[in-house]
Computed example of a mutant assay.
Amino acid sequence: MRTKKISVDELALPSSSDVVLDLLFGHAEHQLSAQALCKAGDLFGIGSQSMRVALTRLLQQGKLGKTGRGNYQLNPGGNTLFRDVDDWLHKENRARSWNGRWLGVHVDALARADKTIWRRHDKAIALRGFRPLRKFLYVRPDNLKGTLAQTRAELHALGLIDSALLFEIATLEPQDDAAVRALWDTDMLRLRYRALLDLLARSGKALPKLAQGPAARESLLVGREVIRHIILDPLLPAEMMPTQERHELIDAARQYQAQARSYWSCFLEQE
Rank of each mutant, 00 (worst) to 15 (best):
138 Y>I: 05
138 Y>C: 06
78 G>C: 05
142 D>E: 02
220 L>W: 05
79 N>F: 04
27 H>E: 13
215 A>Q: 02
34 A>W: 00
198 D>C: 07
163 S>G: 08
98 W>S: 01
261 R>P: 12
9 D>A: 13
81 L>H: 02
184 W>D: 03
263 Y>V: 13
104 G>Y: 00
68 G>C: 05
166 L>R: 01
110 L>W: 06
149 A>L: 13
156 H>A: 15
27 H>R: 09
83 R>H: 07
81 L>V: 01
219 S>M: 00
133 L>W: 11
47 G>H: 10
111 A>C: 14
244 Q>V: 10
158 L>A: 05
223 G>Y: 08
99 N>D: 14
77 G>W: 00
197 L>G: 05
182 A>C: 08
78 G>A: 04
268 L>A: 06
15 S>C: 06
115 K>C: 09
140 R>L: 02
87 D>L: 06
126 A>T: 14
62 G>I: 00
41 G>T: 07
171 T>E: 15
221 L>I: 01
167 F>R: 02
88 W>H: 07
125 I>D: 03
222 V>S: 01
91 K>I: 03
252 A>I: 06
158 L>I: 03
99 N>F: 06
26 G>S: 11
102 W>R: 06
87 D>E: 13
151 T>A: 01
262 S>E: 15
271 E>G: 13
17 S>A: 15
75 N>A: 08
259 Q>S: 09
196 L>M: 07
229 H>R: 11
124 A>Y: 00
260 A>Y: 12
189 L>M: 15
140 R>K: 10
137 L>M: 10
18 D>F: 00
151 T>I: 08
152 R>V: 06
31 Q>C: 03
255 Q>I: 11
82 F>A: 00
21 L>S: 05
145 K>G: 05
187 D>C: 05
11 L>I: 14
157 A>N: 06
39 K>W: 09
87 D>R: 09
114 D>R: 04
136 F>Y: 14
140 R>A: 05
264 W>Y: 12
271 E>S: 13
51 M>K: 04
227 I>N: 06
206 A>Q: 08
268 L>S: 03
197 L>A: 03
50 S>D: 09
128 R>G: 00
79 N>D: 13
133 L>A: 13
16 S>Y: 08
52 R>P: 11
114 D>E: 09
233 D>P: 02
166 L>W: 00
167 F>V: 07
75 N>G: 04
206 A>M: 11
193 Y>V: 02
120 R>N: 09
97 S>K: 12
95 A>Q: 01
20 V>T: 05
163 S>E: 14
60 Q>D: 13
262 S>K: 12
215 A>V: 01
42 D>F: 09
6 I>Y: 04
220 L>H: 06
236 L>A: 04
85 V>I: 14
57 R>A: 15
142 D>M: 01
153 A>Q: 15
88 W>V: 03
123 K>H: 15
12 A>R: 14
188 M>P: 08
30 H>F: 10
193 Y>M: 03
177 D>Y: 10
38 C>Q: 08
118 W>Q: 03
107 V>I: 15
50 S>T: 07
12 A>V: 13
236 L>P: 02
229 H>P: 09
106 H>L: 11
146 G>C: 07
56 T>Y: 12
225 E>F: 13
104 G>L: 01
184 W>I: 05
39 K>Y: 12
214 P>Y: 11
99 N>R: 09
154 E>K: 02
122 D>W: 09
3 T>P: 04
151 T>W: 00
38 C>P: 02
20 V>M: 03
